[in-house]
Simulated scan of single mutants.
Amino acid sequence: MDTSASLTSAPRPLRWLGALYALSALAAIAAASDWLPGAWFWVLKPLTTALLIAHLARHEGPDRALRRWVLTGLVFSLAGDTALLWREGFTVGLVCFLVAHLAYIVAFTRHVRLLARWEPFVFYGLVAAGVLTHLWAGVPGPLRVAVMAYVMCLVAMAAQAAVWAWVARPTPALRPAAWAAVGGALFVASDSLLAIDRFTHPLPWRDVWVLGTYWAAQWCIAKSALRHSMRQP
């Protein structure tokens, strides 16, 4: 077998899947914003996340456990995406994404222990406090415990990703860790915008900002588990 040829050709389907993911995300945002038929959104929203799952699943990364936990998070994200297509599925979607963040936290502790640095947790804790303070009056009573639990899990995921990047700074592992940290920050931004729109006041261009940052966040998190993101310089 020509090993060099197989290595050269292997990334091609991955590039196509990555391009399809980007196109599907853009089309879903357009459908959500009524620039395309709204019915398309029901197909494109879960399809976009499914394409990212396929993109990562086809890639044999150097850390199989990290890749497996990120894939687990993406699968629960797909379940959450599907549930949130119905307004009545908000609570189910919230639980699915909470489990997804727990899976990401496990992934981001593969190379650095949980709370190895306290500074990112303090920073994101302050972000969580600010978001919850702004939202609290508009959150219905039955949802308050679930929303608080979700926000704490979300910011813990973002903080642990930042810890990984902080600790990895002097090493080649910074590249995947940086992808994870950017993904975590984008996820916090996306969910904060979504919560503001839902519980306080409507946001202009809501779907552009919320979905754009969401799928960018998922892409960055998936990139943290890809082999070329971990390649030694």
Rank of each mutant, 00 (worst) to 15 (best):
D2H: 14
T3P: 06
S4T: 13
R15F: 10
L17F: 03
Y21G: 00
A27W: 00
A27E: 07
I29P: 00
I29N: 00
A31H: 03
P37L: 06
G38A: 15
L44P: 00
I53F: 02
A57F: 06
E60N: 08
L66E: 15
L74F: 00
F76D: 02
A79C: 11
A83H: 02
A83Q: 03
R87C: 00
F97S: 06
A100T: 07
A103G: 10
I105H: 08
A107D: 07
T109W: 10
T109K: 02
R110A: 13
L115C: 11
P120F: 09
F121C: 09
F121I: 12
Y124E: 09
G125Q: 12
A128D: 03
G130D: 07
H134F: 10
G138R: 04
L143M: 15
M152G: 11
A158R: 04
Q160E: 12
Q160H: 10
A162R: 15
W166P: 08
A168T: 04
A173K: 10
L174D: 10
P176K: 00
A180Y: 02
L186V: 05
V188S: 08
A189N: 06
D191E: 08
L194H: 03
R198G: 08
W205S: 14
V210W: 07
V210C: 05
L211K: 05
Q218S: 00
W219E: 11
C220V: 03
C220T: 04
A222I: 03
S224D: 13
S229N: 05
R231I: 13
